[in-house]
Simulated scan of single mutants.
Amino acid sequence: MGQKLVGILLNAAMHRGVPRLKTGQESLEAYEEAAAGYGMVPCFLQLSDINLEPGFSVAYVKGLQGYQRTVVPTPAVIHNRAIFSPGSTGIERLLGQGLQIFNTCNRYGKDHIHGLLQQNEALRGFLPDSAAGLAGLRDMVNRHHDLILKPCRGSVGKGVMRLSRKAGSRRWSWTYLPAGSRRYVSRNVSPENLHPALRARFAAMPYLVQERIPLAEMNGRPFDLRVTVQRGWGGDWQVTGMFAKLAAPGGFVSNIARGGEAFSASAVLEQVFGGEAAASIRRSVQMLSLSIARQLEQSLPGLADIGLDIGITKDLRLYFIECNGRDQRYGFQKAGLSGTWKDSYRRPMGYARFLLDNPSRYIRY
């Protein structure tokens, strides 16, 4: 295989950090190593530097003096790691010129993803009961005693709240994280007469209301699994790996950015359920995750690299919690799974090389 270029599309702020090696959770070194394994050279792009008229672009490419802005032939295959909304005109312009971009959009509303999965009868049993907006909230308090309220387009657990009815009482407790605070607070509220601050949050942005899944716990801390599902060489979906996310002590969200911790999925499952059950759970989670990816790919263009949160109850029921269109892979490192972390970079680069060699296999829908 001769060396070829593969594009890595970054947001402008992250792109500016490339020459200083300041790219947050994105590892330039991991991209370099993964791409080299497939005979490719990664070039780091931002949307404004892709000039298709002459067929050349400006990109950061690693040389003897580090990363330098270099004029390169516009890569035929680009892995999008920037945040763009569905139907972005910039992405559509590139696609219209025949470029192969995977994960063209990686920020989908939680309500939209839930609706797409709801269309598959075989997956409905894995979905928590859900409704949208204030009207949905009023319906849900009549059906469940414990609810999770999520911004439809939020990420890393930001803005997630809990509404729960106290045992043996008609009183409800609203738990949330005030702006600028690291400590959750709770208020007594009435579903018939919602607190003005809670109403204001729903007015400010669309919210999805879901029954709170009674997640299995380890040492009193609820946990779920992050499952990385990616296309690799050959174009088929594969489960790259998974790790467990434990909520902070006393917390109800497992996001690492909200105080959660990452651990080996195998170790957590074996401690909680035992070795034989843990192996069965891992197989079931893998099968469910692949089914979800295949369902979503029917409606989401260029989907190739996602992170799924899968919950497990004490009685071994599985639930889909949410889909992350730009999977933050650093959880594997925090869980001590450095080999899987490298695989999470390697697999998309394998898919990129596959598309370079087999452009007719590019799936846009």
Rank of each mutant, 00 (worst) to 15 (best):
Q119K: 06
R282C: 02
C43W: 02
C105M: 02
L300Y: 08
F263D: 01
G2Q: 12
I363D: 06
P222Y: 06
S57H: 01
N103G: 07
L149C: 15
G311I: 11
V229E: 02
H144P: 05
V61R: 00
S173E: 09
P206D: 14
R346K: 14
I321D: 14
S264V: 02
S190L: 08
R231A: 04
R20I: 01
L356R: 11
P214M: 03
H112V: 05
F332R: 04
W341M: 13
V77A: 01
E29W: 06
Q238H: 09
R182T: 07
S88I: 03
K62Y: 05
Q328D: 11
R258T: 00
A262Y: 14
H114C: 03
R171K: 09
Q25V: 10
E270Q: 11
P359H: 04
E270S: 12
A76Y: 07
L198V: 00
A257D: 09
N219C: 08
G17F: 01
G115Y: 04
F354C: 10
G302S: 15
I310A: 04
A135H: 11
L5M: 12
R212N: 13
H144M: 01
F126H: 00
A12F: 10
I310L: 09
A257R: 10
M14W: 10
A293G: 10
N219T: 13
V253C: 00
D305M: 06
P359F: 06
N80E: 01
L21P: 02
R162T: 02
I50V: 15
L300D: 13
G336T: 09
F252C: 03
E322I: 07
F354L: 14
F320T: 07
F56C: 08
G232C: 06
K314Y: 13
N80V: 05
G168D: 10
I148H: 08
A59Y: 03
E322L: 12
M140D: 07
R326K: 14
